[in-house]
Amino acid sequence: MKTIFQSLILLFSISFISSCVVMSTKKYNALLVQKDSISLGWEASRNKVNALEGEIVSLRSDTALLNSKITELEEKLKTLDENYSALKLNTSSEIQKLADDLQKREERLTEVEDILRKRDEATNALKDKLQKALLGFQQNGLSVDIRNGKVYVSLTDKLLFSSGSIIIDEKGELALKELAKVLKTQPEINISVEGHTDNQRVVNLGQITDNWDLSVLRATSVVRFLTEIEKIENDRITATGKGEYQPIETGSSPEIRSRNRRIEIVLSPKLDELYNLIK
């Protein structure tokens, strides 16, 4: 731009010198106006160039800043992509693990339900066998029922013992023999013999001091008969005394007291398989 301006000035000067002798005042003034116009144009152009150069510098700075931000954002995006991929992988792994755990739990639940179903079937079958085997004694104070998945054979004391006695009488032995026949065919059944009394105080029974003693000794008599005479395995059977504290009915009438004085033989299936499943 400066070179162009200098060329114009030189041209103007030559023209001026070559024609100064014959140039009129009017033409001279026109040349001056032209010179001023060229000077103003050159100044405006120079200012515009300076402004453009400043703008170029600013744009270059902005471009560098934007490139830096783009690079930073690209790095963040790369990190986010890596994190997302890792999270997606971990989430898929966790979901699969949860699905596997759920499937295992459902399988265990199915096994437990199957075992419980078999237990209930076995319990009902055992009840039917006992009812048939002990049918002749049911009018003499014997009953068979199911409670909480267990079979309860309840024998009133008059079916087994004389009043105040812990020795099983002949009628009671017959009932226990029939019971033992069924139990010998059910080796997977655990046996618990529970002695129960009424709430009347024990009197004139020698070394038997209270209902606790009476209930325990009567349960023990039944256990000894089943193990020593009928040869039921000792490790299948236990004896406990409940005294007067688990009555069938509350009250003090002779009928209620008679029902509360009883031996209950509780039969429950061995649940080792079930216990192993739920450990």
Rank of each mutant, 00 (worst) to 15 (best):
I168T: 08
V193G: 00
G195D: 01
S192P: 01
I168R: 10
T185A: 15
E194I: 05
D169I: 08
Q186K: 15
L183R: 11
L159G: 05
G195K: 02
V182F: 05
E170G: 12
D169H: 15
G172F: 00
K177D: 13
K171H: 11
I168S: 07
L174K: 15
K181A: 09
E194S: 08
T197P: 00
H196N: 04
I167N: 11
S162M: 08
K181G: 14
E188C: 01
S165T: 05
E178Q: 14
E170D: 13
L160W: 00
S162C: 04
L159Y: 03
I167K: 13
K171M: 09
L179S: 01
K171C: 03
E170H: 13
K184S: 14
S163F: 08
V193W: 00
L159E: 03
V182W: 06
Q200C: 09
T185N: 15
G195R: 03
E178F: 07
L174H: 12
I189C: 08
H196W: 00
I166K: 08
G172V: 01
L183M: 13
L179W: 02
Q200W: 00
D198R: 05
E173V: 06
E194H: 13
F161T: 02
Q186I: 07
Q200V: 11
S192D: 07
H196Q: 02
I189S: 07
D169G: 15
I168L: 09
N199T: 11
L183I: 12
L174G: 13
K181V: 09
I168P: 06
G172I: 04
G164W: 04
D169Y: 07
L159M: 07
N190R: 15
N190C: 14
G195Y: 01
T197D: 06
E173D: 03
K181E: 11
E173F: 06
E194A: 08
I167S: 11
N199E: 09
I168Y: 01
A175K: 01
S192T: 13
I166Q: 02
N190T: 14
L160V: 04
K181T: 13
P187I: 13
L174F: 12
F161W: 06
I167Q: 11
E188D: 15
L174T: 10
I191R: 06
S163C: 04
G172A: 03
S165Y: 01
E178M: 10
S165G: 05
E188P: 02
K177M: 11
G195T: 04
E173L: 08
E194Q: 14
K177E: 11
S163L: 14
F161E: 03
I189K: 07
N199V: 03
E194R: 12
G172C: 01
S192K: 12
S192Y: 02
G164H: 02
I166H: 00
T185E: 15
I167T: 14
I168K: 09
E173S: 09
F161S: 04
S192L: 12
T197V: 10
L179A: 02
N199C: 08
L176P: 02
K177G: 09
G172E: 00
D169T: 07
D169P: 06
K181D: 10
F161K: 06
